[in-house]
Amino acid sequence: MTRESSLQNARVERSEHESRTLRTRESYVQDPRVQHSRTLTVLRTGPQTLIQDLGRPGNAHLGVPPSGALDVPSFTLANRLVGNPEDAAGLEVLLGGLSLRADTSCTIAVTGPTTPTWVNGVLRDSPLHLAAGDTLTLGTPRGGLRSYVAVSGGITVPADLGSRSTDLLSGLGPAPLQPDDELPLGDPTGVPVGVDVLVPVQVPDELIVPVFLGPRDDWFDNPTRQLSAGRWTVSDRSNRVGIRLTGTALDRVSCRVGQELPSEGLITGAVQVPADGSPVVFLADHPTTGGYPVIGVVPEDALPLLGQAIPGTPLRFAPQP
């Protein structure tokens, strides 16, 4: 899908939505000259801002990655705070720098690592209310990489295979945000949850990542010992496809050196070991099949922190029985 067509569709949907909203509110509108559209306008994106929801699992047999927010607990928390269903589409903001203008009044929550948040230049705590014309700006997060922004009503760009998530590997879903994009919002359906204090995500100084051996642990020489003795750091070549690790090379058993594996299905959290021995932990935009052996699988509940891990963070594996 091209960026043009995605935005066109978004605009068509928005204008239909607008006319519906105006019709239903006709009798209440006092001043017909004031027209607020239920959109957000992107002013700046920072290094990368993506629309995400809970992804499109269940399509791997078509070659379609699951995609979806990397830090799921932070993402669903943001939605609950603004009264959305947990799977409403929001924004995944890499390293801050996002600036938005609200074209309608809405409730916003920012979750994930500690992220300074300004409304019209004034530092504010989230969740917060925006009036039409207000601008929201996110600073650089501390203690993690990705902040999540939920907006009451959710972002209602058209869905691909039931999801609005941007999949950077296969190009499904909306394109990464650009300045001047207008993001259509749905109608708010629930009541925002009031909170005073949010506990931010904080990636520890050293990540200790649980891993269950298999399915191809037998390709490696004493895999438990190698995994628990190894020391790695999170590479700056990590992305939504996977966390690349630099450090200890994992050795294959001698009879498997130089061998190839016919491609096989991959699960999110799979620790794949390419020929050079440096492991990759696959995240939401991972390829659906792969030909390098998977020594083990990181359980789902350990993946959100990996999605927040700053390059250079030391990492160890803790093999599970």
């Binding site: 269940g58 016919p262 299905g265 099949t289």
Partner: peptide, 14 residues
């Protein structure tokens, strides 16, 4: 069953 992924010599069941 969430995913059923056949490949060359394997079937992944999630």
């Amino acid at each position: 069953v969430v995913e059923l992924v056949p490949a060359a010599r394997t079937v992944l069941i999630v």
